[in-house]
């Protein structure tokens, strides 16, 4: 079976991760920030899959399943928080919610 070289896969994962991270830093809309976090998580998952395929081990895929589960939980909590912030401030701008500083 034809497999893509390891470097390609890892490069794609790194690209996705960097895009997600930059998005997280740049966007101020909470929904988009949450999506960016999802992208970063999937980038990490992709890196696991690629590495697992390279060595023919199932661990990478098991890790992916863990990440999926965690992501689902994170979204549930994150959306609940966003909803509650929206109710309180009537906006989704993350910088508005900056009262909690020291």
């Amino acid at each position: 079976m034809l497999t893509a070289p390891l470097e390609y896969g890892l490069f794609l994962a790194a690209m996705l991760f960097t895009m997600g991270f930059l998005g997280l830093l740049v966007r101020r809309n909470l929904i988009f920030m949450l999506i960016c976090v999802e992208v970063m998580l999937n980038a990490a998952g992709l890196a696991f899959i690629v590495a697992g395929a390279r060595w023919g081990q199932p661990d990478g895929q098991i890790m992916m399943i863990f990440i999926l589960t965690m992501a689902a939980a994170e979204v549930a909590v994150g959306l609940a928080l966003i909803l509650s912030i929206y109710r309180r401030t009537k906006t989704l701008d993350a910088d508005v919610v900056s009262q909690m500083h020291g």
Binding site: L24, L25, S98, Q99, M100, H101
Partner: peptide, 14 residues
């Protein structure tokens, strides 16, 4: 150091 805790989530992420 208390300056660093400004409440902007994006700064924390950075």
């Amino acid at each position: 150091l208390s300056r660093a805790q400004d409440g902007f989530v994006r700064h924390y992420a950075l």
